[in-house]
Design a binder for these strands. Structure first.
Lengths: 152, 152
DNA sequence: TGAAAATATATGCAAGTGCATTTAAAAATC
DNA sequence: GATTTTTAAATGCACTTGCATATATTTTCA
């Protein structure tokens, strides 16, 4: 019925707008802290972290694409930038002639180690500090429902 | 204490990463629906909506800047694009020689009306449908704490 | 008042992103 | 096993964004 639908819709749009505003605002502040400390953007960290977590500290671009939310062409170019900066190497894939392997370098590992405390503190100050542990558990479990739907 | 801190940190990072992933993923899907329907990006809608809400359906760029999370130079250029497409007019501000007034046009109002059902359905399908009304109330109230801190 | 500081907007340039397409190799199909 | 289809990665081009700065105007205040 009209009234009920309207209330539900208001609720949805309100939550939606807040989600977008909050995540954008907090991301900007976290990125600003990283930049202020002289570090590259968070996207670099994400990629390097995935590399470190991987089997032999290397991944194919197509795998990075799946781990992150990046488009194929963005992965391709982000990798170029990261490699140009010396944090990873691009090697030919031994098992697939089309592919390459992106390998974490020692310099990349060092960057991860150096960025971590700054990143951790940024998230703490700009995000975690503003809510309780139980709030964080709550939003984690609610937001999980949104991300899981995206698995291709 | 070590153990306690570590658990708290895991909780923070987990919630943080989920917030970023979820909001990015859902935003992309909503934007994709708008684009598929032949509409401009959500940012245009946001600006036009602010104009419609305003006193005489017009705002100064500096006010748009405050209502959205856009940087000054981005507002300036976004307005140019919106005006070039005929959805708003740029007029000299009568009371401030430095400023301009951005006025919603009839065409802009029409765009808002046409985009709304598509936008509403996109948010419904990509976001609201995946959670309960009480989930939405919960995340709204938790995320409010993050945005409010940003008021300059 | 008149110089200095602050505010509003615009813009050149470099860097990042989206889209469409290209190239090359692997997999599937017949 | 040759041909078609699919997959991996790169790239040219147009558009968007970020940064620094320019320009004009208003505000402040000595």
């Amino acid at each position: 019925m009209q009234n009920h639908d309207t209330r539900h819709e208001d609720l949805s749009m309100d939550a939606w707008v807040r989600l977008q505003r909050a995540s954008t605002a907090v991301l900007e502040r976290v990125e600003a802290r990283l930049k202020a400390a002289g570090f590259p953007p968070l996207g670099w960290y994400d990629v390097l972290l995935e590399l470190r977590r991987a089997e032999d500290r290397s991944l194919r671009p197509v795998e990075i694409e799946r781990h992150t939310l990046l488009a194929q062409y963005n992965v391709s170019r982000l990798i170029d930038r990261i490699a140009a900066a010396g944090y990873a190497d691009k090697k030919k894939s031994p098992e697939d002639g089309r592919g390459i392997k992106v390998c974490l370098t020692r310099k990349g590992e060092t960057l991860l180690e150096e960025m971590w405390p700054v990143y951790r503190e940024a998230v703490q100050r700009e995000f975690a500090e503003h809510m309780s542990d139980s709030d964080m558990k709550t939003i984690s479990s609610i937001l999980k429902k949104l991300v899981s739907q995206s698995v291709k």
